[in-house]
Structure formats: C-alpha cells, structure tokens
Design a protein around this nucleic acid. Structure first.
Lengths: 207, 207
DNA sequence: CGAGGATAAATGAACGTTCATTCTTTTTTA
DNA sequence: TAAAAAAGAATGAACGTTCATTTATCCTCG
C-alpha cells in the first residue's frame, strides 16, 4: 500500500519522530538521486545504487514512486517548486520593477549558490531528455512572477521589449552555466562575481 | 584491423568513391549518434540502435571506435573542432576588438542555427557527465581566439574586466539555451531575435 | 496498560530483458 | 588467392521491476 496514505491516518500517540519516518526516507531518496544523477547522469544511475546510498532496499523505492521515470519526474517537480518558492518568497506586485527584478535575481542566485546540487540537477533536467515533456511544461509554470515583472518592465519602458526566452537566456541562464562550471571545478564563484553578473544581466535587458 | 590505416595505404585506381567508403560510414555513425543522443540521452542510446540507423553491424562500430565511451569522446571532439574552426574561420588579430567580437559571435550563431543538431549535442556534452574529463579539457582549448579578443578588449578598456567564464556565460551561452528551447519546441528563433541577442550580449560586457 | 493478532512497510532474492562487447564466419577488397 | 572489413549470432553482466517473506506498526481486548 502507498506509504503516504498511512502517514495521514496515523494518529498514534507514542510515535513522534516516527510519523515522519517515511518523509525522512523519501528525503534520503531524493538526495541520493540528485547526487548520483549529477555525477553520473540519469541513465547511468542504477536504482540499486540509489537504494544503497539512501540505505533502503531497491524494492522500497517502488513504494514511493511508480518506477524510475516517475522518480525523476517527481523529484524534478519538487526541486523546481523549492527553487521558485524560495526565489519568489518576498515577491510583491507593488515593488517597483527594477527593484523587484533585482530582489528576485538575488534570491535565485542565493538558492543556486546555497543548494548547488539542486541547481545542477535542475539544469541537467532542463537541458537533456531525462524528464517527461509534461513534467517540463509543469515546471515552467512556476516562473510566472518573474514573467510578470518583465511584462511590467516592458510596459513601463524600463526593459527591452524582448521575448521572455531572450530575457531568461540573458539574465537567469548564465547563472546555471556558472554553477555547472563551478561543479566541474573549472571556476570558483565569489561574491564579487555575483555583483558583476547582476550588472551584466541588467545591462543586457535594460532600456 | 583498424579501418583508417588502410585508407591511407590504399592507392588503387579503380576505386574512386570507395576510398572514402569508410569515411562515409564513419559519418553515418557520427550522425546517427548525434541524433539519438539528442533525443534520448547518451546512456539511453544502445549501440545496436546507432548501428541500425547507420546501416551497419554493431560489431563494425568497434572497428571505428574502441568502445561506447570512446565513441562519444571522439565525436564530441570532432564536432567541437568543426564548431570552432567554423566560428574562427575569418579571425584575424588585426581586426578591431568590437568588430572582431561581432564577427565571431555571428559565425557562432550561424553555426548553431545551421547545424542545430550538432550545437545541441555539444550543449548536452558540455552540461552533463557523458564525456570524459580529459575530452572536456581538450575541447576548451579550441576557444583561444575568442579569449584573445576578450583580452585585447579588456586591455583597451572596451570590455569589462570580467572573468572569461562570465564573458562566456553572458555572450555565448545564451545562444545554447535558445537553441535547446527551440529544439524542445518552446521557442522559434527568428532573424530579429539574433540581432536582439547580439545587442544583449554586447551590452552585458561592454564598458 | 500491555500482550497479541492483524495490517502495512520493508526487504533480499529472483526474473526476464537489454545491453556492450566479442567470436566465428562470410563477404569484400587488393 | 591472401588479407582486411563487415556481419550476425553468442555471451555474460547489469539493470528495472516483481514476488514471497520478514519485520515493524497499529489497534483491540484482557
């Protein structure tokens, strides 16, 4: 039977930490998957290895996910959701465009620097055919606040009237590239670089 | 025995197209690999399928490449070399910095648009752990002329004194992102977009 | 409150398939 | 006719997934 269902029904008293035992196990699976996929790629990562690193039997994974594809789809959507809810946590439609963009950009940078493994995992899923098309579509929706800021910026003639894909390519995507380079050991991102990066991003789209 | 060796030794008369038969076969293997890896990912692409699409026996692949890893390493380096020699074909150290950068940028864009499958293949290899570290290092060397232009630009105070990784992230990498989006069917790159993209690139790094 | 039977969760071993690679034979080339 | 190239079938290992069984949890009743 599905693991999550019982978590809701379980109303026992003498179980405090145990109520979340399945959540801990799930987290271990997520972390193991992210780390292995980042280092070996999805199809070079066997279920058996994910299980071993998460200290779980391979069969247990199938209590949490339908199959290997479902595993990566679900983890992708979960991490994407973590990423965007962190990035837009302080978002308000009242904030002026330039300031709002800067705040979002900084939180995106903070997330990518602080949760580097998750950022790299997202980059790999976004750029290669490992996740389902429907999961990819689903993931894009979460970016709406950023698109809203850009639209306000275009209306107010503060931001060039460019396609959202171009705006993304020149302001957000460079961060993914830098993170990947850092993981590959080619480059070390310092605080100074982040300031320069923000200036480059803003210069590329400001009117 | 190795296939290439005999190509050099073969001096027969009544073989015109046949001299390059092995080259044709190799090209078929390269094309099949690029297409399949782009659509399925490297580890989800069986040797047997590459062989079928290239109209060749699986065993024949092992006459051209040592193993599957060697296959992707060699193809990566070959395509990277095609990419850079196209991009720097008209390069001259005499050309002024801004013009030189623009010319290189345009040829890079031309290559990526005209050989989209190869551009996507490179992007996938550059961003995921499919190729060997040594091949990756080898591939980076080919970008030297671009780094030279940037260095001249920094000396002449035409370009911000940024790390080459930042300059790459903001001027070249966005093109890779846009190409991947186009392949995924989310975005269609028009001539207009390329002009806008160049302006964004230059604005992000110019002093 | 505490034991024990029922139910759910977790496991390791097993299954069937697929894959990379090799071996033997056939075909092509010189 | 000899030597290289190509082929298809064979091999052994690895994988995703399932199954039968064990272990942990829960609820009821003494």
């Amino acid at each position: 039977m599905n693991v999550h269902l019982s978590s809701y029904l379980c109303t026992s008293k003498h179980k405090m930490s145990e109520v979340q035992k399945s959540e801990l196990k799930r987290k271990a699976l997520v972390d193991a998957t992210i780390s292995l996929v980042n280092n070996n790629g999805f199809h070079a990562t066997p279920i058996s290895k994910i299980a071993k690193i998460a200290s779980v039997s391979p069969a247990t994974i199938y209590l949490y996910f339908e199959n290997k594809q479902d595993l990566v789809n679900k983890i992708y959507l979960q991490v994407k959701e973590e990423f965007t809810s962190y990035s837009f946590a302080n978002y308000s439609e009242e904030t002026p465009v330039e300031q709002s963009f800067k705040e979002i950009w900084n939180r995106i940078a903070q997330f990518k620097m602080g949760r580097m493994d998750k950022a790299i995992f997202l980059a790999q899923c976004d750029n290669t055919p490992v996740i389902d098309e429907s999961s990819r579509q689903e993931g894009i929706k979460h970016l709406q606040p950023l698109l809203d800021v850009w639209n306000r910026g275009k209306e107010d003639q503060l931001i060039k009237p460019l396609s959202d894909y171009l705006l993304y390519a020149y302001t957000i995507n460079p961060l993914s590239f830098l993170i990947v380079m850092q993981q590959q050991g080619s480059f070390k991102i310092e605080a100074q670089h982040l300031e320069e990066a923000y200036q480059a991003a803003w210069n590329s789209i400001k009117l």
